[in-house]
Simulated assay, not measured.
Amino acid sequence: MERTWRMLREGHPEARRGCPEVIEAAFAEPRLRGLYPFPSHGALYFQRNTEFPWRSDLPYIAAGFTGYLVYAARSADVLGETATPEEAVALVVAHLPDDCGPAIEGPWPEPEPEPNAGPSA
Rank of each mutant, 00 (worst) to 15 (best):
84 T>W: 08
98 D>Y: 01
45 Y>I: 02
94 A>K: 09
70 V>T: 06
98 D>L: 09
80 G>D: 06
67 G>H: 13
69 L>T: 10
60 Y>L: 11
24 E>M: 08
86 E>N: 07
28 A>K: 11
95 H>E: 01
95 H>S: 00
54 W>H: 02
38 F>E: 05
62 A>K: 15
91 L>E: 06
59 P>N: 09
111 P>H: 11
27 F>P: 00
102 P>Y: 05
49 N>Q: 08
42 G>T: 06
27 F>V: 05
111 P>W: 13
84 T>H: 10
108 W>H: 11
78 V>E: 15
38 F>T: 03
97 P>N: 03
91 L>Y: 06
29 E>Q: 15
73 A>T: 04
42 G>P: 11
111 P>R: 13
35 L>E: 00
69 L>R: 15
99 D>W: 11
57 D>G: 13
54 W>F: 13
55 R>N: 09
42 G>S: 08
83 A>Q: 14
104 I>M: 14
76 A>H: 14
90 A>C: 08
83 A>V: 10
46 F>L: 03
71 Y>R: 04
82 T>L: 13
34 G>D: 14
89 V>M: 12
110 E>Q: 12
42 G>I: 07
46 F>A: 02
27 F>T: 04
89 V>R: 10
28 A>E: 12
76 A>Y: 10
87 E>W: 08
97 P>D: 06
82 T>G: 12
52 F>E: 10
34 G>N: 14
41 H>T: 10
84 T>S: 15
91 L>A: 06
42 G>W: 11
109 P>F: 15
24 E>T: 08
86 E>Q: 15
106 G>R: 05
96 L>V: 00
43 A>Y: 08
102 P>L: 10
68 Y>E: 08
41 H>V: 11
51 E>N: 07
46 F>I: 02
77 D>L: 14
94 A>E: 14
62 A>C: 13
104 I>G: 15
53 P>N: 03
38 F>L: 11
32 L>H: 06
106 G>E: 05
98 D>K: 12
60 Y>H: 15
99 D>Y: 10
110 E>I: 07
74 R>Y: 07
58 L>F: 00
54 W>E: 01
84 T>I: 09
75 S>I: 04
93 V>H: 01
